[in-house]
Design a protein around this nucleic acid. Structure first.
Length: 853
RNA sequence: GGGCGGUUAGCUCAGUUGGCUAGAGCGUAUCUUUGACGUAGAUAAGGUCAGAGGUUCGAAUCCUCUACCGCCCACCA
């Protein structure tokens, strides 16, 4: 390969990825003396496309992976693919719908096979996209969430929980989507504020007491009245105290229900009287349990009124039933008013259907013991969180966690291995023969439960399932995922990990925030503001996307996508490409291109020092997951130090061995962040061997601290001269005269090269004239400028004297403060003194100059 | 109702044991047809670190309060 003028990522990226993959570089090494480093990828939807959030996920995880691989750890990045139970099901059901079919046209096994085929036809896209993002994961270890080993582990866990009595079947109020015909966990329900009405309805007392003939309840859902089994008032509410225990006649029915006392009724709200419908409201359900009330189901799973609602209402939708109930009450004179209110209503997060709380028999996990262990582990700091505050948030959540409904009524998932006796609905057994709808056991016939597991029940076991072939990699090193998955995923992995293995599933948790659109809005298909990572890769390159995504981003915080950062990153790749092109050119032209890399000039010592510094900094920052700062550090090194100063100077010196070594070090250090361009360069350079991905992390370069410091002085001189050249009228360059200055004397050529001054003449002190440069430590440097320009310069000098005076005041005030001198660290005080001294000298020089001009 | 973030340059944001002159990218201004790069180089302008109070020799950073923006959880008859 040869270096073209500009780096064009799309020409190299696919080949480079193939090179890595074929070479086996993604496989974990098994070096006994090395540490194990393991990251499990949050499995993306097997048949979906990656979104920008995946871009960030992969960038962060792959930086860690590549860094630890370079450091020599046995590094294992485990990819996954998610069957995405409900998500995929929704997509498939839509497909059925478009074909004029419904799920009820098929049996469960048939549907399962259909979706399986559907997913496998679509599959592979996501995996290609992961490759485009550069994920250096071990593809042979890819685990699909329906793989046999997943199912086996999930069944073992279920059986263990079952045997220990932590699994129970219960009738509870569940969040039910009548369109998708499935229940949801509380966390999966989206609440939205909506305008509604609060109706007042009179319930007549059966036997009027103390002049009270009726009580008025407030409700937003009149249709549920048909399922009322009590009316509640607050026990402290004096208005109703003496009618507690009385009966009221439930309108539109022939039932009589009791007035009960319960804290749930808020005397401040509405009339202070609440109708209780245990079968259709979570709070009422709790009241019902406390008071042992009947639970009458008046709304069915189809979203229509049941027979129990009465012949007048049976078969109506809830909306129609509401209208009818209202008009019937109106007719009977029991409707006493309505007022508009805003209240929050639960919706299905996929189809937006209003969630009905319905009574349903489901499998539940008793989470109390699991949560307790998880809380203990968290409080004992066995897992470190980034950002730290997420840990407390999680503990808080776990403390209030309710039992976990793990049944879902969708065919696409892991079947629940439970069977019920056909003759006894309370006789459930655990059995793994889920491929049969009916089994025989002990002379009895059992029918399979048609439900599948909640996705999080299986993915909550992900870390130990995926590492089962290399058990030394469990617990994993870090779980990196989106902050939105703290409860549903991270929390469950910790609970189930501890339960099953006794160990925490990972040592660190790093949670990234959401990637918002450029205006800071949440991305969504409906808003049309979605950014496709693969398009960015095509346009700017995979490395540019990564660097751009991690730039200026800190843990746990939602941040806007910034295309300017992506462009800046693309430019960095191009810069590095051209740096390499220049060095390759120098190598090609060199007479003796080989030899020991050694710093032989101030600038070389300086760059060695800076490379070492950046090397240490990157290590320190990555250990703390401070990706953005690590990226900044390497960016600054490459662009502002290596290219602008060191390489510019090397155009004169051409220390080929050092150029080669320093370039290699930079390529390796940047490789985790920008794998493609660094590898492409590595493969293109004439002298490098092997692959960048499998190099060793650079060791320290030798340098002289004194010489490095000298170069810094030189930089100040150069910058000062350049600044004058720009600001002086006419904006041209002038000879730089000096006397009695060894640094300038030794570096005349270099100064001329950096400043483009027409000459650097050494003069005698008595010949000194022109513009005197005020540079601390270098009092004898002059710009030889014409007299008229010199005069104009005076005003500028005056300003600078004033501002320097202010700086000196600040330092003096600080030193005059006895507490500062007493309490601040000595080094700091000494440093301040030193600064003051140099500035005072400088001021004297400038004042003297001012007199002269 | 409970909790968590955020408020720093025109824009998007960094800034973690409190300590040099508060940084980056983009944008802006001026200059540069330097044979690595114009996806470039050089120089520069631009900040009462949301507001008020406190702790400290010293606060963008720690504490208290306030305002505004965003998110999460619970509840909403």
């Amino acid at each position: 390969m040869k270096f073209s003028k500009a780096y064009e990522p799309d020409q190299y990226e696919p080949e480079i990825y193939a090179l890595w993959e074929k070479s086996g570089a993604f496989k974990p090494t098994e070096n006994k003396n090395a540490e194990n480093y393991t990251i499990v990828m949050p499995p993306p939807n097997a048949n979906g496309n990656l979104h920008i959030g995946h871009g960030l996920t992969i960038a962060l995880e792959d930086i860690l992976t590549r860094y630890h691989r370079l450091k020599g750890d046995n590094t294992w990045y485990i990819p996954g693919a998610d069957h995405a139970g409900f998500e995929t099901w929704v997509v498939y059901e839509r497909k059925l719908e478009s074909e004029g079919k419904t799920r009820f046209d098929y049996g469960r096994d048939e549907l399962y096979d259909q979706v399986w085929n559907f997913v496998h036809e679509q599959r592979g896209n996501m995996e290609l996209q992961l490759r485009a993002l550069g994920a250096s994961c071990d593809w042979d270890s890819l685990t699909f969430t329906l793989d046999q080993k997943v199912v086996d582990t999930v069944y073992n866990t279920f059986e263990k929980l079952w045997k220990q009595g932590l699994i129970y079947r219960g009738v509870k109020l569940v969040n039910f989507c009548t369109k998708h015909q499935t229940a949801f966990a509380d966390i999966e329900v989206t609440h939205k504020d909506e305008k509604g009405k609060l109706w007042q309805i009179a319930y007549p007392l059966v036997k009027p007491k103390d002049g009270i003939e009726e009580i008025i309840v407030s409700t937003t859902r009149p249709e549920t009245l048909l399922g009322d089994t009590a009316v509640a008032v607050n026990p402290e509410d004096n208005r109703y105290k003496n009618i507690i225990g009385q009966k009221v006649k439930l309108p539109l029915t022939d039932r009589e229900i009791e007035i009960i006392a319960d804290e749930h009724a808020d005397p401040e709200y509405g009339t202070g009287v609440v109708k209780i419908t245990p079968a259709h409201d979570p709070n009422d359900y709790e009241v019902g349990e406390r008071h042992n009330l009947d639970m009458i189901t008046v709304i069915g799973f189809d979203g229509k009124m049941t027979a129990e609602a009465g012949a007048n209402y049976e078969g109506l939708t809830t909306a129609d039933a509401r209208q009818k109930v209202l008009s019937d009450l109106e007719t009977q004179g029991l409707l006493r008013g309505e007022e508009p209110i805003v209240h929050s209503v639960g919706h299905c997060y996929k189809c937006d259907t209003v969630i009905e709380p319905l009574l349903k028999e489901q499998w539940f996990v008793n989470v109390e013991p699991l949560a307790r262990d998880a809380i203990n582990a968290l409080e004992a700091n066995r897992i470190k969180f980034h950002p730290d505050n997420k840990k407390r948030v999680l503990i808080n959540y776990l403390k209030n966690l309710k039992d976990w409904n793990i049944s879902r009524q969708i065919p696409w998932g892991i079947p629940i291995p439970a069977f019920v006796n056909v003759d006894d609905p309370t006789d459930w057994i655990f059995d793994k023969r889920v491929d049969q709808t009916e089994i025989e056991k002990g002379g009895k016939t059992y029918r399979r439960d048609e439900d599948t597991f909640d996705t999080w029940f299986s993915s909550g076991q992900w870390p130990y399932i995926t590492t089962s072939d290399r058990k030394q990699h469990y617990p994993t090193s870090v779980m990196e995922t989106g902050a939105d998955l703290l409860f549903q995923w991270v929390g469950r992995m910790i609970m189930l990990g501890l339960y099953n293995t006794g160990e925490v599933p990972f040592k660190d948790v790093y949670m990234h925030g959401m990637v918002l659109d450029e205006k800071g809005q949440k991305m969504s298909k409906s808003k049309g503001n979605v950014i496709n990572p693969i398009e960015i890769v095509a346009q700017y390159g995979s490395d540019a996307l990564r660097l751009g995504l991690i730039a200026s981003r800190s843990a746990g915080v939602n941040q806007a996508f910034s295309s300017s950062k992506v462009i800046a990153s693309r430019n960095l790749c191009n810069k590095l490409w051209n740096i390499s092109r220049l060095i390759q050119d120098m190598v090609d032209k060199a007479e003796k291109p080989n030899g020991e890399a050694e710093a032989t000039s101030n600038g070389e010592d300086w760059i060695c020092r800076e490379i070492n510094k950046t090397n240490k900094e990157i290590q320190k920052l990555l250990a703390k997951y401070r990706f953005a700062e690590a990226g900044d550090a390497i960016y600054d090194l490459i662009w502002n130090k290596y290219a602008d100063w060191f390489l510019e100077g090397e155009k004169l010196w051409k220390n080929i061995p050092l150029l080669k070594t320093t370039l290699e070090q930079i390529l390796i250090m940047l490789h985790p962040f920008a794998p493609f361009v660094t590898e492409t360069i590595w493969q293109t350079l004439s002298w490098t061997e092997g692959m960048c991905i499998t190099q060793k992390w650079p060791s320290e370069l030798k340098f002289s601290a004194t010489k490095a410091a000298k170069f810094e002085e030189l930089m100040i001189i150069v910058t000062n001269i350049r600044s004058h050249f720009q600001s002086l009228p006419g904006a041209s360059s002038y000879p730089v005269a000096f006397y009695d200055d060894k640094l300038v004397y030794d570096n005349q050529l270099l100064i001329q090269h950096y400043t483009k001054a027409p000459g650097i003449p050494e003069i005698k002190p008595e010949d000194a004239n022109g513009l005197h440069l005020a540079i601390a430590g270098h009092p004898n440097i002059y710009l030889e400028i014409p007299a008229d320009i010199h005069a104009k310069y005076k005003a500028n000098l005056e300003e600078r004297i004033l501002s320097l005076g202010k700086e000196i005041d600040v330092l003096e005030t600080r030193l005059r403060n006895p507490n500062y001198v007493k309490k601040a660290p000595k080094e700091l005080v000494d440093e301040t003194k030193q600064q003051l001294e140099t500035k005072q000298h400088l001021l004297e020089d400038m004042k003297a100059e001012f007199e002269l001009v």
